[in-house]
Design a protein around this nucleic acid. Sequence first.
DNA 1: CGAAAATTTGACATGACTCAACTGGAGTGG
DNA 2: CCACTCCAGTTGAGTCATGTCAAATTTTCG
Lengths: 197, 197
Amino acid sequence: MSIQALIANFDKYLPLNDEEREALRLCVVERKLRRKQFVLQEGEVCKHYTFVVEGCFKKYHVDTKGVEHNLQFIAENDWITEVDSIHNRKPSKAYIEAIEPAIILQISQRDLYDLLAKFHKLERIFRVIIENRYVALENRLLQTISETAEDRYLSFMEQYHDLASRLPNTQIASYLGITPEFLSKIRGKLSKKTEKS
Amino acid sequence: MSIQALIANFDKYLPLNDEEREALRLCVVERKLRRKQFVLQEGEVCKHYTFVVEGCFKKYHVDTKGVEHNLQFIAENDWITEVDSIHNRKPSKAYIEAIEPAIILQISQRDLYDLLAKFHKLERIFRVIIENRYVALENRLLQTISETAEDRYLSFMEQYHDLASRLPNTQIASYLGITPEFLSKIRGKLSKKTEKS
DNA sequence: CGAAAATTTGACATGACTCAACTGGAGTGG
DNA sequence: CCACTCCAGTTGAGTCATGTCAAATTTTCG
């Protein structure tokens, strides 16, 4: 069963014992999603912590002009979180949407809180997971305020080349904070450069 | 003693009992810093978790051209963290520098780990602290990729008006990811606008 | 296959940076 | 108290980065 992937993911942080595994098994629910289905929509309170077994998601906000801004892509063996909504029970400002057919595992907010209260080890694992996220996000912010769009695009392609190949450029442009047209121009310029050499 | 401020800060998350307070007291060290002194410099491994009792700090990276990029300002009753460096024992890529005379409390990495292992409650508090940071950072990233520099400046001034009054505009510009000259032009434009009304 | 979405391209407009010059405090030493 | 320096802030001209809009083309998915 696909919960093995989730347990393997935890084990990378700290190995779980049988009791902890069993507790997880009892509260994890599997779901399948088609393209364009939502894990979370704006205005909803996020009620589940979600682990991606298969497929790929985007988390984005929609601004007042109706333009989408991608905050994150989430693929296999990673956690989907809308931290502010799930922990503070606030309506989400973000959408989380499948961009490929997907299989996910979900733990309800209630069950998660019980697990965290009962197992110090899980509390630690979730602390470390969010810390790693924080580091990645801070690096991205640094790039965003200090580098040109072309450099950010190159970094992204280098760091996430496997992910990038599954994404339309429109989505990458939104993630980088530029328009699809401008990304296309960057790509045009870069391919001319590499042709020459 | 200034450790009261630290305990009060924790209590806002979860009230500490006497044992936990005592354990904290035993490992917290107070330091005073003058302007331009560093809590952490590039290349050093971060060895302390730091709480700001008084004063204000900036955390920044220096790029290959020697330009500083401010990632964060940290003032009273807040935590200074270089997450990647302290937890993964990697040399820091950031500087953390006092921009006012300051009083801080520090817990060594070693002591912190003991505390987190011993007290589940502290583990939770640190999880929640980093989660809140994450949320704030994500909002800032969203603004950075979706809004114009003028709007980001206005948001910053609204959200951190008390902090902003203590900072030179150069530092704010660096935080917003723009040049000081351009910020000056934005300010000029805005003051013309408000004059009219 | 057919509709919808993604991509490219070009002309033009605006945002933001660079560089250089100038202004006006805030120390600092005489 | 003055002369001096140093740094933050402002301003303007020119340039580069990026956005907007529209049209044509290609790809993708149902």
